[in-house]
Amino acid sequence: MPNPFVLNTTNREDLSIMSIEGYLDAHTAPQFEEKLQAEIEAGRTRIVVDCSKLSYISSAGLGVFMSFIEEIREHSGDIKISGLAPKVRHTFEILGFHDIFDLLDDVQAAVKRFEDKPTREV
């Protein structure tokens, strides 16, 4: 069985770009949580999460975004989310995450958003 969840992080100057692939559910969310925690502990709080290859998310995945965002914004950072497929975006929207997070079309737009609006109020 192929790995249901793959995460790759690349650094672009002071931005971390985390590309997540597969599905983010209660089984795989702890892997994402661990990597996000490591970024914050390393002082990297300007994070783009590229979801263009994410096929599914449940509340366990959304919970990871939810639990870290305040700490990240307290450090003047942010999580910008890019490339959501319509099905995945719908789950973000049902719970009102589009009011809390910047959802961008692609990584380029997310990087640009960091230039225009590095952080936002929780």
């Binding site: 949580e33 449940s58 509340s59 366990a60 919970g63 990871v64 939810m66 639990s67 049902i94």
Partner: peptide
């Protein structure tokens, strides 16, 4: 509410609401 969960750094608390909505 979502804002309350965020303020408390919670990762859970969304599942039942989703089920009822969906």
């Amino acid at each position: 509410e979502l804002q309350e969960l965020i303020a408390k750094h919670k990762s859970g608390g969304l599942g039942l609401r989703l089920i009822q909505t969906l």
